[in-house]
Structures are given as C-alpha cells and as structure tokens.
C-alpha cells in the first residue's frame, strides 16, 4: 500500500495537520512518500516520511492554488500511490479536487480514518459532524482529505526513512493566478494561545451585552475570553479571540466552553486543551464529545454562581 502525503506549510513550518496525515500514513503500514513544494531544507522536518519528494521552484515559494494543485496532481499521476492523504485545510481544499479529477481517483472528504482490510475503506463525518459514514473504495485507490484530529501529530514526526529526492518541477506555464501578499491579523489584543484559562463563548451567549459576564468570570479566573466563529462574524469580539479552523489553535490548561455547540471547525482549534469543561443547554451538542466534563443547563444561571465561587 503506497501512501503519498501532500504536505503543507506556511511561514516556514509545516502544519500539525501535515504530521497527522503522515501519522495516518504510517498507521497504514506501507511506504510513505511526502510531497514538499518548497525549499529542500524543510525536508528534514518530515520525520514520518520514508521519502520526501521535493519540488523546489521560485514559482512555488508561496502557496498558489492553481500552481500547487497542478504540481501535486502531476506527482500523483507519476507516482501512482494507492492512497493519497491531504490535510483537509484551506490549502488542502484547493488541491484535493484537482488531484481527484486529473488522476481519476475517488475523493473522500471530512475523513477521520482510512483502513486497509480486504480492500480500502474510510470513515468520515458529514452534516457538521452529526453523522458518521463508512465508505468502501472499490477501486482500491483514492484521495482522502483528513480532518484535523484524525491522528496524533507526534506519530507523524518520526519513524520514516527520511530520504530526500529532488524532482523536476512540472510544467507551470500559463498560470493565471498570481500571489500578491500574505496579511497577518492586527495584533495588540490578548494572545489567547498564551493564556492558561480560557472562558470561551459561542452562540449560546446570545448577545454582545452578555459577553461582559464572561469577561467578569475570566477576570475572576485570571484568564481571558475567547470565542467561536459566529461571535466574530457578528462583530462582538475581534478575530484575535477566535478559536477554530480559521482562527487560533489553543492548548490551555482549562478550556471552559459556554454555549459552544462544538462544530468540527471549532473543535479543531481546542481539542488538545488539558481540561475541557463544556456547558450547553442541548445535551446532544457535539462539544460534549471532546469535553472532559460537561453540564447541561442554562449558562446564564451558572456564570454568576461560578464567578462568585472562584472570585
């Protein structure tokens, strides 16, 4: 079972999702090749790969959807692996479909597990994580877009032979996309990745006004307030407070989730916290799946009590 992992990196380091994909690859047992579109010097970091195929080209210095999709598709066509693993991130989304179409391979998205056991099969999560689906891949070959958390990143950092092979850049003529610049978010606010205790609010907080209660609780705990995406979309908190796929990944000692339902994109950003305590009035909220402790009830009744108790 040959596995090919499409790696992704930003600002000089690979994403955790890359290492998770490598970990999945190692789990499958077969030789694991990784494609790196970037400087060869980075290849050493991919400890979980047996072979690193490096495509080093100034045109690929920054991620360009059209270019990277072409490169990956070309390499998959050339190397003909059985299993292609793509981290299901913003970058992964741009390349997975191209690979599937160009190489005629089935594509499984929202994947949480890939198995080889009398044939190739996978498990994935649809409908915002509410339904788990098992699929068979009759053709025996496929592209799997892996959800964050499908494996432990640590398992993907080592165990591979680590051979580096430079490959020629596939034809990039006629590119119609040009990278202009990367934009960092405005700073000056609290860095929630550096805080020990996070009080996190989701849609359940209901209004901008009520966030003040969470702030009071956070202050009493000596921590900070963070939130899920809908809160930022409403403009109630700045983007710097967002936890999740397109926000920040945090690993605090205490993660107190108030009125957060636990959509997969949010869980991605916080499942590594040491102690996750979730409060929600819906007993079926997905957050309870990753939380260590949970309470089903009205967060507006809890917050005042808790603020007093910890103050």
């Amino acid at each position: 079972m040959n596995v090919l992992v499409l790696t992704e990196h930003l600002q000089g380091s690979f994403t955790d999702a890359t290492f998770e994909a490598l970990a999945v690859g190692r789990r499958l047992g077969g030789p694991v090749e990784a494609v790196l579109a970037g400087p060869a010097s980075m290849a050493g970091q991919l400890g979980g790969a047996d072979t690193v195929l490096v495509v080093e080209d100034p045109a690929l210095e920054s991620f360009i959807p059209e270019a990277h999709a072409r490169v990956f598709a070309a390499l998959v066509a050339e190397r003909e692996p059985e299993v292609v693993l793509v981290p299901y991130t913003s970058m992964g989304m741009d390349v997975a479909s191209e690979v599937s179409m160009r190489c005629g391979l089935p594509l499984v998205s929202y994947c949480t597990d890939v198995r080889v056991d009398e044939g190739l099969s996978a498990t994935c999560r649809l409908y915002a994580g509410k339904i788990e689906v098992d699929v068979d891949v009759p053709g025996g070959r496929g592209v799997f877009a892996m959800l964050s958390g499908s494996a432990a990143a640590a398992d993907g950092r080592s165990g591979g032979a680590g051979e580096v092979v430079k490959v020629a850049t596939p034809d990039l003529a006629g590119l119609r996309t040009r990278f202009e610049r990367l934009v960092e978010p405005a700073g000056g606010d609290v860095d929630i990745t550096a805080v020990e205790v996070l009080v996190v609010v989701g849609r359940g907080i209901e209004s901008k006004d009520n966030i003040a209660q969470a702030e009071a609780l956070a202050a009493a705990l000596g921590g900070a307030v963070a939130c899920s995406r809908p809160i930022v979309d409403q403009g109630w908190l700045p983007k710097t407070r967002q936890v999740g796929k397109s926000g920040l990944t945090v690993k605090p000692k205490v993660y107190l989730a108030l009125g957060v339902s636990g959509a997969p994109e949010h869980l991605e950003g916080m499942r590594k916290a040491s102690t996750i305590i979730a409060v929600n009035k819906d007993p079926k909220a997905p957050i309870f799946g990753v939380a260590h402790y949970g309470w089903v009830g009205d967060l507006f009744e809890l917050i005042p009590e808790l603020t007093v108790k910890v103050g």
Binding site: L10, T15, P65, S90, R178, R181, L182, S246, G247, L248
Partner: peptide, 11 residues
C-alpha cells in the same frame, strides 16, 4: 488560512 492569516491573489 488559519490563525487569522490571509493571502491575496490576483486571478
């Protein structure tokens, strides 16, 4: 992307 980082392209 993530962590609030965005990229601009001209297509």
């Amino acid at each position: 992307y993530w962590a609030g980082i965005t990229a601009e392209f001209r297509v």
